[in-house]
Each structure stands twice: as structure tokens, then as C-alpha cells.
């Protein structure tokens, strides 16, 4: 017979998703924020992104080839996602060699030492970023001004979070965020890391990923809600009233890496919990730790640390938080 019979146990259908297609969707979701960043900061952004992506891909390729062996995994596009996210966490003034160091740390230490995609306990891009932040604090916190026409510098060169934090010591919360221009924050016209500034573009990317069922709502929503509630509680119990009650939470959601972290970094498959309940616990943890660092810690921004800390808790969450089993609730 001219037929060859193929035999395998059921199921015989597979949905069109693959690791590669999921990663491709994440990349697509990141593009609007990249575009806004390039508009705000100029073409340097694209150069940095290109360097970050290239070095991540090359590092992964080489490590796989030289140390791990077996099938090349570069084609699953995860190295590109890591590169993009790493670039998004860098200021535009960063020298090129620091980017390469970041890529080596992110992919080499953060991912491949554990055996590659799927086995790393910590988000590789964040491992890279935090390493750079500690190793090169000056270069990592020197933010250039947006170069786009019509930008008015209200924050004197520092990121909104840093300037608010520097004021927070001796002023009330209302005074501290008094100079914040929320419209500028939505469009990305503020100093900051390349990818974290454009709130609207990040939200668009998040909605795209939700629509494509790449992520679920649980992690981003629980992080952002926790942050907002936390901020509200701090202001409210601090005795302040008036517009600051909602402006302060809104500020914390829009400023710094909150949206980038909540939508793109914390939702990293490998390092986030497996169940919806677990995801919400994880999100609350990230939100709370971020706010604690932002308000009382040494750094103005705490998203990266919060996510890394909760990454470490993820295996524990997976162990103890089980999905809702069928048939447990309504036994007769």
C-alpha cells in the first residue's frame, strides 16, 4: 500500500500555539513601547535594543553550542525576548559594553547555567538588570531627557520616582507629587529606562497578550491593584485627604517600571506560579514588596527586586497552592 500508517495515542489534534509563537506574540506586544521610546528618545533606543538582542542571542547560541550541546534553542525566540526586556530596563545613555555585560549575565548566569529555557528560577532579564544596577549604579541611573519636541522638563532630569522620593522626606505626599504631569507619564514623556516610560503603549501590549491568550489577567491585575491599594492606604492613614488619595496610587502605577514589570516581567512563564490562585498570591507579593522598597527602601524603584524575590518564592507557591480540583466543592 502506498499509505504509511502513523500511530500514536490520543489526542490527535494540537492547538496552533508553540513556544515560538508565544514568544513571537510577546515580541509583538513589546513593539508599541519600543516605538514610543524611539519617538521620545531618538534612534539611540533602536541601537541599544539591537545590541542587547544580538548579544543575548549570540551568548545563548555559544553557550548551547560549547557547553550544553544538543539541539539549538535560539529558534524559540526566548533570547530575543530577554534581549528586548533587558534593553527596556536600560537608560539610553548606557555605554554599549555594559549592555553586553548585562546580556552575558542575563543569559549566561540567569538562564543557561540552569540548563536553558524553562529551568531558570529567576527572570533572566531582571538578573541582568539588577547585576548592572549594582555593578554600574552611575551609568544605570543617568537618564537623558526626552528629545521629542514639546517636552517641558518638570522633573529636573531625574525620573519621577526619584524626584518624588527625594522630596518625600520632608514634604507631604501631596506636595511631593505636586509637580507630576500625568499626561506626560501616559505618553512616555519623562526620563527613565527605555521601555518603562510609555504607560499607554505598555497597556496596549498587555491587552494584545491577553487577547492572544499569552498571559492571563491574574498577575498584572493583582500587582497593580496591590500597589494602588498600598499607596492609597499609606496616604489615607498618613492623614492626607483630597485629590492626593487617588493621584498618589495612580502615580505609582504609572511611574517607573510598574507597568513594564507587572505586564511583561512578572508574567514570565518560567518564573511565575502555575495556578491562578498562586499567581494572585505572587502578584500581591510583588506589589507589596515594590511599594515597601519605593516608599521606605534605599532605591527609588523596587519592581525588579520585588519580582526577583517573588521568583524565589514561586516553587514554594507551586508546592502548596493547588488548583481547584473538580468535585471537591459540592459533594453531596
Amino acid at each position: 500500500m502506498a499509505n504509511k500508517f502513523i500511530a500514536a495515542p490520543a489526542p490527535h489534534m494540537h492547538n496552533p500555539h508553540s513556544t515560538q509563537s508565544l514568544m513571537r506574540d510577546v515580541i509583538i506586544a513589546l513593539l508599541p513601547a519600543l516605538a514610543v521610546s524611539a519617538w521620545v528618545y531618538g534612534l539611540d533606543v533602536l541601537k541599544i535594543t539591537a545590541i542587547a538582542i544580538t548579544s543575548c542571542v549570540v551568548v545563548e547560541f555559544l553557550i548551547q553550542k560549547l557547553f550544553i550541546g544538543g539541539r539549538q534553542t535560539v529558534s524559540n525566540l526566548s533570547a530575543i525576548v530577554t534581549g528586548l526586556l533587558l534593553a527596556f530596563n536600560l537608560p539610553t545613555t548606557i555605554p554599549w559594553w555594559i549592555i553586553v555585560v548585562g546580556a552575558v549575565i542575563a543569559i549566561g548566569v540567569g538562564k543557561m547555567t540552569y540548563g536553558g529555557l524553562g529551568k531558570n528560577p529567576f527572570n533572566p532579564a531582571l538578573v541582568g538588570r539588577v547585576f548592572l544596577l549594582i555593578a554600574y549604579p552611575v551609568q544605570m541611573t543617568t537618564f537623558s531627557q526626552p528629545t521629542v519636541a514639546g517636552y517641558v522638563d518638570a522633573m529636573s532630569g531625574a525620573t519621577p520616582l526619584a524626584s518624588v522620593k527625594s522630596l518625600a522626606g520632608d514634604a507631604s505626599f501631596a506636595e511631593a507629587i505636586g509637580g507630576v504631569d500625568f499626561t506626560n507619564m501616559l505618553y512616555g514623556m519623562m526620563p527613565g529606562s527605555m521601555g518603562e516610560i510609555a504607560a499607554l503603549a505598555l497597556i496596549v501590549g498587555g491587552l494584545y497578550m491577553l487577547w492572544r491568550k499569552v498571559i492571563t489577567w491574574h498577575i498584572p491585575v493583582s500587582i497593580l491593584c496591590t500597589m494602588a491599594l498600598f499607596a492609597f492606604a499609606v496616604v489615607f492613614f498618613g492623614g492626607e485627604r483630597g485629590a492626593v488619595l487617588y493621584e498618589f496610587p495612580a502615580f505609582h502605577i504609572l511611574a517607573g517600571g510598574a507597568l513594564l514589570g507587572a505586564i511583561f516581567m512578572a508574567t514570565d512563564y518560567v518564573t511565575s506560579p502555575m495556578t491562578h490562585k498562586g499567581m494572585i498570591i505572587y502578584g500581591i507579593g510583588i506589589g507589596a514588596i515594590t511599594m515597601i522598597i519605593r516608599l521606605w527602601g534605599a532605591y527609588p524603584e523596587g519592581m525588579s527586586f520585588a519580582i526577583l524575590i517573588m521568583n524565589g518564592v514561586t516553587p514554594l507557591i507551586n508546592k502548596y497552592v493547588k488548583p481547584r480540583r473538580f468535585g471537591k466543592t459540592s459533594a453531596k
Binding site: 504509511k4 502513523i6 500511530a7 500514536a8 495515542p9
Partner: peptide, 8 residues
Amino acid sequence: KTNEYNGT
């Protein structure tokens, strides 16, 4: 061989 096994 009469067929090809495609499972695990």
C-alpha cells in the same frame, strides 16, 4: 514494519 509509531 507495518506502521510508524509517533507517540512517546
